Simulated scan of single mutants.
Amino acid sequence: MINGIKPLDRSLRWGMVGGGGTSQIGYIHRSAALRDNTFTLLAGAFDIDAERGRTFGASLGVAGDRCYPDYQTLFQQEAERVDGIEAVSIATPNNTHFAICKAALEAGLHVVCEKPLCFTTAEAKELAALSEAKSKIIGVTYGYSGHQLIQQARSMIAEGLLGEIRIVNMSFSHGFHNEAVELANPSTRWRVDPKFVGPSYVLGDLATHPLFLAETMLPELKIKRLMCSRQSFVKTRAPLEDNAFVLMEYDNGAVGSLWCSAVNCGSMHGQKIRVIGSKASLEWWDEQPNQLRYEVQGEPVQILERGMGYLAPRALEEDRIGGGHPEGLFEAWSNLYRRFAVAMDASDRGDKALLENFWYPDVHAGVTGVQWVERCVESADAGATWVDFE
């Protein structure tokens, strides 16, 4: 259990690009990074408006001379300081991720990046290669994977409790954009603009979350090919989709399906993953993240609760309070940031043994997400045809 003891003997000097006062996601980055004293926020380029960014940074307690007008100045001037930042989080619109991430790595910084890393597989692989060359990690904020019961599912599947994996059913389908809400909401508007988000909306924004949950639970399972159909029910969003269906075939003969939608009226979130084997099934729902359903054919359903002693050790080590008390997304993100810090420190120390067996949403997870969206768009635009994943 996490009890406030720092996992490292230091706090990493940390900065942010984006995540300013109008950001939807900036606060959870800061809350997660600062919770376990693994990072100290020292600098940032918080807003595209330099003055607004300086004012916001000052309100966070960041020194005025370390609130920069843009990321280029941030990286350049921090590199000249003996106490300059060691890591940076990127919480900006999607179209900027590649350039900022590349510049950060070239400046010798570790990176935590919002997904997607970029728009093309070629760009994602370039970032992966640069990360390796610079011995700097890239962490990707697939925040839901920080919930402990995802690791419980991973452990149970690895033990063979489900038998041969046959079906993986995934969804992330909310209803909050069933109308053109972006017309009155600037923070939503850029998410449906191809200039900012690239070739997809819900496939990249929503679907890659349960896709990574499946990757975490089933690390040995690889996608062979997929087929995608996508729709723009709010017509002003075309060519970007607000609803999509994806079918997948895996290398072991299993099949998968994923429904992502922003127009599922009445649904709060609708993110679920169900893994079905020859012996039993597991199901997790992010609106009830402290429970995992375990269903053995012919037996009563078992509800496994977070924080209980019958769980696997890996599912218990990141609890922050005992079972029965609910933990949520802020705790899940904190777990990821704690892991990002440990990975960054191990990389700086050259501890390859730790990194080989240390799980976190890394650059390769980011590459897979970009490639998956690229293949889905390719399939949908070709009339929902099957396409090879590799």
Rank of each mutant, 00 (worst) to 15 (best):
G4F: 09
K6M: 14
P7K: 08
L12A: 09
G15L: 03
G15N: 04
M16P: 02
G19T: 06
Q24H: 13
Y27V: 12
A32H: 00
A43N: 02
D49Y: 03
A58V: 11
G61H: 07
R66P: 01
Y68I: 10
E78K: 06
E78H: 09
R81Q: 12
R81I: 09
D83I: 11
D83F: 09
P93K: 03
A99H: 09
C101W: 02
K102I: 03
C113T: 10
E114F: 01
T120N: 11
A124Q: 00
L130V: 05
S135W: 04
S135D: 14
K136T: 03
I138L: 05
G139Q: 06
R154Q: 14
S155Y: 12
M156I: 04
L161Y: 15
I167K: 14
I167P: 01
H174N: 14
G175A: 12
G175T: 11
F176C: 08
F176K: 13
H177Q: 12
E179C: 11
E179V: 13
A180N: 12
A184D: 15
T188Y: 08
R189V: 02
R191P: 02
D193K: 10
S200G: 15
S200M: 11
L203E: 04
L206E: 04
A207R: 00
A214N: 09
I223V: 13
K224P: 00
R225N: 10
S232M: 02
S232R: 01
V234L: 04
V234Q: 07
P239S: 12
L240S: 04
L240N: 01
L240D: 04
L240C: 10
N243G: 04
Y250W: 13
L258G: 00
C260K: 06
N264H: 14
C265H: 14
C265A: 14
R274G: 04
V275D: 02
G277A: 07
G277T: 05
D286C: 12
N290C: 11
L292E: 03
Y294K: 02
V301H: 02
Q302C: 08
Q302Y: 01
I303W: 13
L304C: 07
M308V: 11
A315F: 02
A315E: 05
D319T: 08
D319Y: 06
D319N: 14
G324R: 09
G328V: 08
G328I: 07
G328S: 13
L329G: 03
A332I: 08
N335M: 11
R339L: 06
R339T: 01
A346F: 02
R349E: 11
D351A: 01
K352L: 10
L355C: 01
N357Q: 14
V367F: 05
G369D: 03
R375V: 02
C376S: 12
E378T: 10
A380I: 03
D381R: 12
G383W: 03
